[in-house]
Amino acid sequence: MGQETYRKLAFVASARPEAQTALAAVIAKYGNVDAAEADAIIPLGGDGFMLETLRRYLPLVQRGLPVYGMNQGTVGFLMNGFVIEGLHERLDQSTQTEVHPLKMTAQAAGGQVTDTAFNEVSLFRQSQQAAHIKISVDGRERLGKLIADGVMLSTPVGSTAYNLSAHGPVIPIGSDILALTPISAFRPRRWRGALLSGHAKVRFDVLDPVKRPVSASADNSDIRDVRSIEIEQDRETTLTLLFDEQHGLDEKILQEQFAT
């Protein structure tokens, strides 16, 4: 729980008209400071904008600057409700959720690419041809050939995003588990993925990348013509997200598991 330390706030907003209107309203009431001088960053938008904000301010967030999102988008799973009044009090009473992103190193036709993902790292077929992907975990081959539209590795935070749409499992926060989920698997037809330790190192090798090209995505950052990709949790990076008391991210994930 907070200790009445969130007084200097840095507000940022997506380009949506409602988010821009909300931005003007909160700045008029609470002022606005540069993120480097703030006690917390307050993004106004949806989950996509939250991910953009984490990327944009990653050096500050890595050093412990917390992020408290307010929903001015569509889904808003990573956001709190938008209420102008009593913001300082809400922040002081908020709960903290610490998360670790994924660290990705990809070998592509254009060279090596490194990136960070907060939700998931995904591989997708780049043409009409199904992707052929070999999957290894901690240096040991686990699946010699997955024939599918693609495959993804998801964090607990991302387990309720694209992973859930692909029929992957919802993972409770704090479980230190990653979800490995196929996307429209053709062979093995009955393979539904796997739950891996948060310490696991996963490697995807693209088989026949010329005939069956594959692209990779770290959240919303895309890489074309991938040959191989290695992924592991970046345990040296801890991000702090703030949620209203009684409505933390762990509670949202639990609710999602009972959704009908």
Results as ranks from 00 to 15, higher is better:
200 A>M: 04
175 S>T: 06
217 S>M: 02
77 F>K: 00
119 N>Q: 11
77 F>E: 00
228 S>R: 07
215 S>M: 08
95 T>S: 13
145 K>F: 10
112 Q>T: 11
150 G>M: 00
110 G>C: 04
254 L>D: 15
215 S>K: 12
225 D>E: 09
53 T>P: 04
220 N>G: 11
259 A>I: 03
14 S>L: 06
202 V>D: 14
67 V>H: 05
62 Q>R: 13
83 V>I: 08
78 L>S: 05
174 G>T: 06
251 E>P: 00
172 P>Y: 01
202 V>H: 15
7 R>I: 05
93 Q>N: 15
213 P>C: 00
176 D>P: 02
108 A>H: 05
147 I>C: 10
223 I>R: 01
255 Q>Y: 14
69 G>Q: 11
112 Q>D: 07
77 F>H: 06
20 Q>N: 10
98 E>N: 10
258 F>H: 15
148 A>N: 08
107 Q>Y: 12
185 A>K: 07
211 K>Y: 01
90 R>A: 10
160 T>W: 02
225 D>Q: 11
60 L>N: 13
108 A>Q: 05
196 L>S: 04
176 D>K: 05
152 M>G: 01
126 Q>W: 00
222 D>S: 09
148 A>D: 11
87 L>E: 13
221 S>I: 11
184 S>W: 08
184 S>V: 07
18 E>I: 12
214 V>G: 00
169 P>K: 14
154 S>Y: 10
231 I>R: 00
255 Q>E: 14
187 R>Y: 13
108 A>V: 10
87 L>C: 10
56 R>F: 04
169 P>I: 06
187 R>H: 14
57 Y>V: 01
118 F>I: 08
123 L>R: 05
208 D>A: 12
112 Q>H: 03
190 R>P: 01
15 A>N: 09
245 E>W: 08
158 G>L: 00
228 S>E: 10
165 S>Y: 01
133 I>K: 03
136 S>M: 14
76 G>R: 07
121 V>W: 04
253 I>C: 10
